[in-house]
Amino acid sequence: MSTAERAALADYTTLRVGGSTNLTRTTSEDELVDAVQSAEDAGDAILLLGGGSNLVVSDDGFPGTTIGIGHTGIDAQESADRVTVRVAAGESWDELVARAVEAGWSGLEAMSGIPGLVGATPIQNVGAYGAETSDVLISVDVWDRQRHERRTLSAAECGFGYRSSIFKYAHRYVVLAVTFELARSEQSAPVRYAELARTLGVTAGESAPLGAVREAVLGLRGGKGMVLDAADHDTWSAGSFFTNPILPAIALPEGAPTYPADDGMVKTSAAWLIEHAGFHKGFGNDRAALSSKHTLAITNRGSASTADIVELAREIRDEVRGTFGIELHPEPLLIGCSL
């Protein structure tokens, strides 16, 4: 059964900041739908809480109802060369990746070590090391708050883009489960990311054993403070705080790295812009600072408030804009606060 309590959101987010809220925990799809409907009937604003790895919540907390997503379950249907896997929104993403690697299901391995729950992955079109959720996602089961019914949306209906989807800024849909189609193979999907390819000793576009790819990705992420560790303040973050800008090539400063994007645009590195605007690893103070391992992560050094995190993010954003004329946009969802 669902349970309700008053809770500090700092206890449920990887940045470990955020004020209090009325928290309802759910453990089944039906409980989740009922909790959403009850909050709507009461006229409450709703915040859906998964792993808390992509949230920056105001020090004032969330004034409505926060609903914790806790239902789990994995249903796999295998054929000779493919496997279709329906995964409940409350499953741990990295535990799913680990299971896929062990079972010989290819397609998720480059996204090892990403914190959070499966239900969040289509919202952000989560990705890393050249792979994205949308590469292998075939449908999303949702509760449609507008039509008050369960629906299944195809990948084409999800409006996926770079770290975006129809789910990210609209509140119409509640993700209940995600279905992926993976290859049955002990070899990975083609390795697209140059740093990962070098680590594996393969050429970009080649494959490698699933276990080797997962081990390499976890090593790379760990070296950047991107694998959660309660003892390491470099991991008290929301991951990459800013998305990599996608711009016309003519708008890029000299020397900035470029990667092909859609519609003749190019993607550049937010970390490069931050560093060349004068910010170094560890920049900040003893409350909020850039990670000592990666300039794209803003971290809580142990006693930061949301205001501290936002102040540092705003300083970085403004300096990059002033230096290069390029606007950085936050990747996590900002709840009750803004830059």
Rank of each mutant, 00 (worst) to 15 (best):
K267C: 01
Y259P: 13
I250D: 15
L182D: 01
E181A: 06
I298F: 00
E186L: 12
M265S: 07
C158Q: 04
Y169R: 12
L252G: 11
L176G: 00
A197R: 12
R214P: 11
P257F: 03
E275I: 08
G223K: 10
D262F: 06
T179K: 04
A189V: 04
A230F: 08
L247C: 04
A288D: 14
E206W: 07
G225K: 01
L290K: 00
A270C: 14
V227M: 11
S291I: 13
A289Q: 09
R172P: 11
A208F: 06
I298C: 00
G161K: 14
R192Y: 04
H276E: 15
T179C: 03
R287E: 06
A204F: 05
N244D: 13
K168P: 14
S269W: 12
E206T: 04
A170Q: 15
V178N: 05
H280D: 13
A183G: 11
R172H: 05
D234T: 14
T243A: 15
A212G: 03
P253Y: 06
G205R: 08
A271H: 00
C158F: 05
R184K: 13
L290Y: 00
A216E: 06
A277S: 15
T179Y: 02
P257S: 07
T235I: 01
F279D: 00
R184T: 05
A256F: 07
A277N: 01
H280T: 15
A170M: 07
T243Y: 11
G264W: 01
A297N: 00
L210A: 04
F167V: 04
Y173W: 15
E157H: 13
G201C: 10
S207T: 13
K281L: 06
A261S: 14
E186V: 09
S165Q: 08
F242R: 03
L182T: 00
V213N: 02
A208S: 15
M265D: 11
V178G: 00
S291M: 12
G223I: 12
A156R: 12
A238E: 00
G222F: 04
C158D: 06
F283N: 07
R163T: 09
H233A: 13
A156S: 09
H276S: 12
L296M: 05
S237H: 01
G239P: 14
P209F: 05
P260G: 03
K281R: 15
E215A: 15
S237E: 02
A230Y: 08
T199N: 11
S269P: 15
S207P: 08
L228S: 06
S269L: 10
